[in-house]
Amino acid sequence: MTVAVESAASKSRGDRGPRTGPLQRMKRSYQKYWYAYAMIAPVAVVLGVLVLYPLVRGFYLTLTDADSLNSARTIGVNHIDATYQFIGLDNYADILWGPTSYDRFWSHFIWTIVWTALCVTFHYVIGLGLALLLNQKMRGRTFYRMLLILPWAVPTFVTVFSWRFMLADSGVINSMLGSLHLPQPQWLEDTFFQRFAAIMVNTWCGVPFMMVSLLGGLQSIDASLYEAAEMDGATPWQRFRHVTLPGLRAVSSTVVLLGVIWTFNQFAIIFLLFGGTAPEADILVTWAYQLGFGQQPREYAESATYGVLLLSILIVFTSVYRRWLARNEQLAV
């Protein structure tokens, strides 16, 4: 698709006038690019000022020992200058190999990986299952769809509080479990169940996006492919395996990538569900936030170091993922 547009675009520009000297062509291409650059200029400026500059600045902070006690600040009318110092890569060394680095970094790191893998798997599998069910002709399809996207329609910070009420020690979920004579775990206190609850809530919140995207993907698969497969005697499973899944590959590769990035960086759910009371259930993002803003003194440098580490993990993952996709020639970018 992209290729088609590209060729069409270049052809149309080429056809506009008779082809003359290279000078004129250069001028014309300059005009074309000038236009394109003008269109992206606002975004480039905003991203440059508010993303790239902070990124560089943030990276510099990771090389210092900045915290809220030695940063520049204004108290009343007095302005106090920053007194933090450049300490090189000490922050990284301390976080990755320093004493108690397992408790401070590696345990959160492992939990973040587990969290991302489990959540995205659940999102995708449940989302695909529901999308397949919704893709059939049946009564009440629209109605089901409206209900099923409800967790997406209602803002996360609202629904998380609802879950918090439900998961409270003698809240409705434990009452139900109690009436069924099942054990009633302390969802918001015990580490294992905190993690369990976080994954559960995130799955609940994230499935509708996957479902809607995959449903769109399913609807764009040519029905004649199914007919052809059926004629050739393919069983339902074979049709799913050899028609549906390949047809969904383009959508899947994009939504899985987005899902991994979003889940890895998921802040609101864990932050609001436990309100900073559950360090064991913090993934790296919320943990970095606790260090930087949830405690006194605020450890700016350490928090930023976690941020840079997080970003490197994601960039490595994305590069590998894209390379893997490119080998399968699937991503259109």
């Binding site: 803003f293 976690y306 997080l310 970003l311």
Partner: peptide, 20 residues
Amino acid sequence: ILLVTQMFPVAVLMVPMYEI
């Protein structure tokens, strides 16, 4: 770049953004 900005964790930008 557009894709990469999607994956900026809040933590990496929050401190410098706060300063700026």
